[in-house]
Design a protein around this nucleic acid. Structure first.
Lengths: 213, 213
DNA sequence: TAGATTGTTAATCGATTAACAATC
DNA sequence: TAGATTGTTAATCGATTAACAATC
């Protein structure tokens, strides 16, 4: 086998947009054999120039005068994002939000499979969410070898999130999606994405407050 | 009354961080009369220089040698974000995600009040979520004057989101938080924030795929 | 005064945009 | 060939960082 040249890192802003392109491409895949950067832009809310610039980081992907092969491009983006076999995900916190995420229809189609749910509240442990029995959080560390999950979602109250993150990292998890509104402290080897729902509304509130009238 | 000078627009990146600072400040407010940019940075995962730069856009807010008054700064940020009276929010889509958002404990504390929920599915209409009766989506336009909501959350399947957005905009809503994984097309007078849960996981997948070993 | 910490400046960095030569 | 559309370049823009004078 030939020596593989490691792909250069993609710009962060590009990485953040590739999933959107991918979703759009999968959506139109069966209807459209090729698609132009302008159409991708229209479908994803990005300028055509931006789309081409982003895709140029993946190598030559289109054909001048024609556009991009929808299927080939979708596959290339999926590969670039590290999506292949479904990736196992554990959810910590089986309250309203955790349960909603466990039932979320958008994950399976897009490369993820919820394989375990955890909670500390004895009223929730043993309950069922989307076909999974909620397990006690203490079991997570040991489970991490049996249930294979590479990503964990924290859907606990803010006060519990850091302790949960510490256990996750100690259990070998290197990717965390955090819904608790606190900054997690983790080492540089851990990727953390933060989604703060109230923050999103507050950003909207700011723009609203600046509208004249 | 003196003529008011309109505040200059804040940089987008600053606006996105102010809610985090605000949350942290409210958290420590009762314990700490003053706080330094370094402590704010530690508590929110931002560098101290970045914190100072962000706060400098709000005017002179601290005292050299001392730091910032926790309470005054929190109040100033809240005001800068346009948070005063609780802001009414309507949720469209009363499925798992919509219901979880309706029950989300993090909204009331941070300036928002869910005032109405809508769905198109007759099995959900009439049901109750967090003390609110789910109303038919057709009623929204007329409701918009009675129930006062300035922000709408779209928690419908992707296929319905654009039509929902169109009705919202026609009803006078200018701020939309969209959980459906599609780019909404709206005029420039409408602020849209997009939260795509599967996208977040895909970004984590990318970083994970680049870790050696 | 000495120590602490802000507010601001200048330098750097990364992202976006616009234009267009290359080429299907 | 003419028209379409990519891939790339250079210019611009906005955000971050580091350093430090101001000042409590």
């Amino acid at each position: 086998m030939a020596a593989t040249i490691p792909n250069p890192a993609l710009p962060n802003a590009t990485v953040a947009r590739l999933p959107r392109y991918l979703r759009f491409l999968e959506d139109i895949r069966s209807r459209r054999p090729t698609v132009s950067s302008e159409e991708i832009g229209l479908g994803t809310g990005v300028t055509a120039a931006q789309v081409r610039k982003d895709l140029s980081h993946l190598g030559p992907t289109g054909t001048r005068g024609i556009g991009y092969s929808t299927g080939l491009l979708a596959d290339l983006i999926a590969r670039s994002l590290g999506l292949g076999e479904p990736i196992g995900v554990a959810i910590v916190g089986a309250g309203n939000l955790g349960a909603a995420l466990g039932n979320y229809k958008g994950f399976p189609d897009r490369g993820f499979r919820i394989v375990a749910m955890y909670d500390n509240d004895s009223r929730r442990v043993g309950g069922e969410v989307s076909g999974l029995v909620v397990r006690p959080f203490e079991a997570l560390s040991e489970d991490a070898s049996r249930y294979v999950f590479a990503i964990a979602i924290i859907a606990t109250p803010a006060g519990a999130a850091q302790a949960v993150a510490d256990v996750l990292v100690a259990s070998g998890i290197r990717s965390i999606l955090n819904f608790a509104p606190v900054a997690l402290r983790t080492g540089p080897e851990v990727s953390v994405r933060q989604v703060d729902l109230a923050t999103e509304l507050q950003i909207l509130a700011y723009h609203r407050s600046r509208i004249p009238g």
